[in-house]
Design a protein around this nucleic acid. Structure first.
Lengths: 188, 188
DNA sequence: GGCCGATGTTAGCGAGCGTTAACATCGACG
DNA sequence: CGTCGATGTTAACGCTCGCTAACATCGGCC
């Protein structure tokens, strides 16, 4: 993993996630980004090729991680418990990384073309892990319908960043799990 | 309603919604905005005080509309059918105005302070309409938990713009209604 | 016919942007 | 000790931005 090698890169990526989530990619300048980690703007070019590259690496990392961990959880022989494992992991990730979830959801269009296509490929693969589990769980269902349901479910789970709410992390996790599972069980 | 008086204003607001949704507020220039309605950039200042004002009016209109229509639907004496009416209306609105939903969800921070506070007030009022109906439906439930559930439900319903999917409008509406109702019924 | 407000245009401003260039510092290592 | 790569800095570039100024057009109205 690239970001683990150089701590400065990881620091920048973390700060960039927060800033991009709060103000949007175009709303954050290179100067802002440097200042957030105690540097001047141009110093960033010692670590990234440009502003685009920061976003691209961020989204590549996270979409690869979602796909990898998703594939692991979806592999269980029992589709019911595989679905619960997917839900548990996605919810934990969303609650622990609200900024990453937000940026991942909103800023794909600002990634340069080649890397954007790779990210989209990974995102689609993650969705298909969920679709596969649900189709095993409900063999009669239409794949298009299930795919739309999975997107809606992600909308529910990823709403986390906006409702900072008064609930504890565990209470929130349990609430989201129950709602999402019920919503998916309602898909015929 | 301000925007109904002047057709040019309405035209600009419509085009701005599409552009802001696709590229983000900071990703759209005044020139882009003018070009989208067949004008040069500076011509916009004949209709709005500035770029901020376009966004502010857009979000004020939509949040007032959500609050008003929400209050109407929530007023029914039977909380069960009130909830279904809220769901039906919100889903129809989201399916018919995906760009407005997206901008409403993402760009509040770019509205100048005074109008931003008014918009937030309206948004909170809309949420509370839903919370009120749900609390009438399940009198024992915790208000904080219900509020978090409503936010999660909005995340599900507003996921529409991202899943352009192969489903027809009616099929999508019915799917979202079923999932959302099941998700909310799972909240104890 | 002549004024006038509404609604456009082009030209240009000051500021901020992403980026590059040139130079400083400093720890590692022969 | 001297060199060198890694990692900073400040200065400056070309460009685009939001916005204003100055001027054009044109339909409605006394």
């Amino acid at each position: 993993m690239v970001s683990a090698v150089n701590p400065r890169r990881a620091e920048i990526l973390g700060a960039a996630a927060e800033l991009f989530a709060r103000r949007g990619f175009h709303g954050v300048s290179i100067g802002d980004l440097g200042r957030a980690v105690g540097l001047t703007g141009p110093a960033l070019y010692r670590h990234f090729r440009g502003k685009d590259a920061v976003l691209a690496e961020m989204l590549l990392d996270i979409s690869a991680r979602l796909r990898d961990e998703g594939a692991r959880r979806a592999a269980g022989p029992d589709p019911g418990s595989a679905l619960d494992a997917l839900l548990r992991w996605h919810i934990a990730f969303a609650l622990d990384n609200p900024a990453l979830i937000t940026v991942h959801e909103r800023e794909l269009d600002n990634v340069p073309a080649p890397q954007r296509h790779e990210i989209r490929r990974l995102q689609r693969a993650y969705v298909e892990e969920w679709v596969g589990v649900l189709l095993r769980l409900r063999p009669g269902a239409s794949p298009e319908r299930v795919r739309a349901a999975v997107h809606a479910c992600f909308g529910l789970l990823n709403s986390t960043p906006y409702s900072a709410a008064g609930l504890s992390r565990d209470a929130m996790a349990e609430l989201l799990h129950g709602m999402a599972r019920a919503a998916l069980d309602a898909v015929t």
